[in-house]
């Protein structure tokens, strides 16, 4: 499984650049344009990310996550979920920068290539900031009632959370 991920990156980069060149796209200009966009989006999230990383670091230093993990570890272990990733599952649907801050905290604390680090990465990669997406999209359309959207979207998030744990445990080592 590891190999697929490792080969995907050079394959995608080489394929995209080659296809671009064949289609006579100004590839380096396009790269610069996209990279500038990347910088801009990073700068636009910087203030909220800094604020939330300060918050997560403080909460983490207070020992809060350790207490929660200890309390929930019997339940989680029974379900095959590492308790250390729970805070990520809680904040991810609500705040993108908060999810980034918590994932970064987990990766530095337990190591990005540990089972916990990988599980958290898969979890973050396969879920979205659900409430933000709902607010932005329905807000733009002027929709007030959401019918079955929230339960369905949260089903997707909860499934991502559990499947990330199970899939990483089964294939990630």
């Amino acid at each position: 499984m590891d190999k697929i991920g490792i080969y995907t990156v050079p394959f995608v980069i080489a394929a995209v650049v080659t296809i671009g060149a064949i289609k006579q796209v100004d590839i380096f200009e396009c790269f610069k344009e996209g990279a500038a966009d990347g910088i801009r989006s990073l700068i636009s999230v910087a203030p909220s990310l800094i604020g939330l990383i300060i918050g997560v670091t403080m909460l983490s230093a207070s020992g809060f996550f350790d207490i929660v993990s200890d309390l929930l570890s019997p339940v989680c272990t029974a379900a095959g979920i590492p308790p250390e990733v729970l805070p990520l599952g809680l904040i991810r649907p609500v705040s993108g920068s908060g999810g980034t801050a918590v994932l970064s905290d987990i990766l530095t604390k337990y190591g990005p290539d540990s089972l916990i680090g990988k599980t958290a990465s898969v979890m973050a990669g396969s879920s979205e900031t659900t409430f933000y997406a709902i607010a932005v999209y329905y807000g733009a359309a002027g929709i007030k009632k959401t019918r079955n959207t929230i339960p369905a979207a949260l089903t997707a998030d909860l499934t991502a959370f559990i499947s990330a744990c199970l899939i990483t445990k089964a294939f990630g080592q």
Partner: peptide
């Protein structure tokens, strides 16, 4: 930047 550049291409 790497990925937003590549994906823009």
């Amino acid at each position: 930047c790497l990925w937003s550049g590549i994906m823009n291409i």
